[in-house]
Design a protein around this nucleic acid. Structure first.
Length: 349
DNA sequence: AACCTTGTCAACCGCTCAAGT
DNA sequence: AACTTGAGCGGTTGACAAGGT
C-alpha cells in the first residue's frame, strides 16, 4: 500500500553477485542467522538490499540446495502437482526437497510447458488443446491439397474432395471421443486390466502405428469387449493418449447412465522398453489423487473414486464444468449432440 | 569468422499478505 | 481502523551460452 520497494534506495548494487559478496552473505548467515533481511546487508557489510540478499540466499547459497538436472521422478511430481495446484511454485517446491520455487518455475517454463504443448495439451489445464484439435481436420485437408491437385479430371477431383471431407468429419468425431475421455471430471480406476479379453499392449502398439481412420477400425474391432481401449494419436510422431472406458452395452446409448473412467498417458518416453511411462491425471479432490506406480508405469487410483460422467458434461452445460484446479470453465462441447447421437458411436455399440 | 536465433537461469519488480504499531 | 513494515510469491527480464546458418 504505497510503500516504496526497498531496492529503490539509491546507491545499492544490483545485478549478478560476485564471489566476495556471496562469501560475505554466507559467513554472516552462518554466524548470526539471517534475522531481519532488511537489516542484514548493513550488518554483513553488503551494498545490497535485503530483498536481494534473501533471494540470493534462498535460491542459490542455501546449503541444502540440490543442483543439476531434474530427475524423471521430480519431473513427474512437478507435472502432477502443477495439474492440481497450478503455478503455485512455492507450494510445489515444498514437495521437492532441495529445489527452489524459482528453479521449478524456470524448469516448467523452459521444459515442461513446451513438452505439454508439443503433446497437444494445454499447459495450464493439462487438458487436450481443443483449439489445436479443432483445426486438425483442416490442417489435414490442407496437407492433402497437393494430392488433390494431382487428380486430372473434374470427377476425380470431386471424388478426392468428398473423401477429404469424410476424413475430416471422421477426425472431428474421433477427436470428440478423445475429448470426452479426457473430461476433467472423469476419474480413473483401471490399471493394467489383465482380465480383458484382448491384448491391450498389442492394441496400443498397433495404434501407435496407425492413422486416425484406422483407429476407428481398431475401436470397432474390440467393440465386443466390455472395455474399449482407445488411442487417439494422429500420427506416429504425436504423443500417445491412451484411455480405458467401461461401456455397459445395454446402457451405451443412454448417455445419462454410461459410466466410464479414463486414463491418459503423456508418453514422452515412447520407445523406451516399450512401456508407457508418463501420465496426466485429473482429479478435483486431494483424496482422489492417483498414486503413481513406477513399476507398472500405470496409475493406481483409490477404488472409492467416483465413476460417473458429470451430468453437465452430457447435457452440454459447459459453464458448470471446471478445470482440474478450479480454473476457468472448460469448453465442453454438447456431447449428446456431437457424440452420443452420432451414427459413428452407434456403430461402436 | 561473424552473425543470428534459441535456450537457460539468476535476478529483479510489483504485488499481496500477515503482523506490528 | 488505518497505516507501516517485512517477508514471500509469481511474472518477467536480461545476460550469457550454445547451436545453427
Amino acid at each position: 500500500m504505497g510503500r516504496s520497494p526497498c531496492c529503490d534506495e539509491s546507491g545499492l548494487k544490483k545485478g549478478p553477485w560476485t564471489p566476495e559478496e556471496d562469501q560475505k552473505l554466507v559467513e554472516h548467515i552462518q554466524q548470526h542467522g539471517h534475522g531481519s533481511w532488511r537489516a542484514l546487508p548493513k550488518l554483513a557489510g553488503l551494498n545490497r538490499c535485503g530483498k536481494s540478499c534473501r533471494l540470493r540466499w534462498t535460491n542459490y547459497l542455501r546449503p541444502d540446495i540440490k543442483r543439476g538436472k531434474f530427475s524423471q521422478e521430480e519431473e513427474q511430481t512437478i507435472l502432477h502437482l502443477h495439474s492440481i495446484l497450478g503455478n503455485k511454485w512455492s507450494a510445489i517446491a515444498t514437495h521437492l526437497p532441495g529445489r527452489t520455487d524459482n528453479e521449478i518455475k524456470n524448469f516448467w517454463n523452459t521444459h515442461l510447458k513446451k513438452k505439454l504443448i508439443q503433446m497437444g495439451f494445454d499447459p495450464m489445464t493439462h487438458q487436450p488443446r481443443t483449439d489445436l484439435v479443432s483445426t486438425l481436420p483442416y490442417l489435414l485437408a490442407l496437407a492433402n491439397m497437393t494430392e488433390l491437385m494431382d487428380h486430372q479430371t473434374w470427377d476425380e477431383q470431386q471424388t478426392a474432395m468428398s473423401n477429404l471431407q469424410a476424413e475430416a468429419v471422421h477426425l472431428a468425431k474421433l477427436q470428440c471421443l478423445h475429448y470426452l475421455l479426457q473430461s476433467s471430471n472423469s476419474s480413473i480406476n483401471i490399471n493394467n486390466n489383465n482380465n480383458s479379453s484382448y491384448d491391450q499392449n498389442a492394441i496400443i502398439t498397433n495404434m501407435e502405428q496407425q492413422e486416425p481412420l484406422s483407429l476407428l477400425n481398431t475401436i470397432s474391432n474390440v467393440k465386443q469387449n466390455t472395455i474399449i481401449d482407445h488411442a487417439a494419436t494422429f500420427s506416429s510422431s504425436q504423443p500417445l493418449h491412451h484411455q480405458s472406458m467401461i461401456l455397459p452395452h445395454d446402457n451405451f446409448l443412454d448417455p445419462q447412465q454410461v459410466s466410464f473412467s479414463s486414463q491418459s498417458c503423456l508418453n514422452n518416453e515412447q520407445g523406451q522398453n516399450g512401456t508407457i511411462t508418463n501420465y496426466a491425471m485429473i482429479s478435483q479432490r486431494e483424496e482422489d489423487y492417483p498414486i503413481i506406480d513406477h513399476q507398472t508405469s500405470w496409475i493406481n487410483v483409490p477404488s472409492s473414486a467416483p465413476l460417473s460422467i458429470p451430468t453437465n458434461a452430457i447435457t452440454g452445460d459447459a459453464s458448470s464444468c471446471t478445470s482440474s484446479y478450479g480454473g476457468a470453465p472448460s469448453a465442453a462441447p454438447y456431447w449428446s449432440e456431437l457424440f452420443f447421437e452420432d451414427p459413428i458411436m452407434h456403430d461402436l455399440s
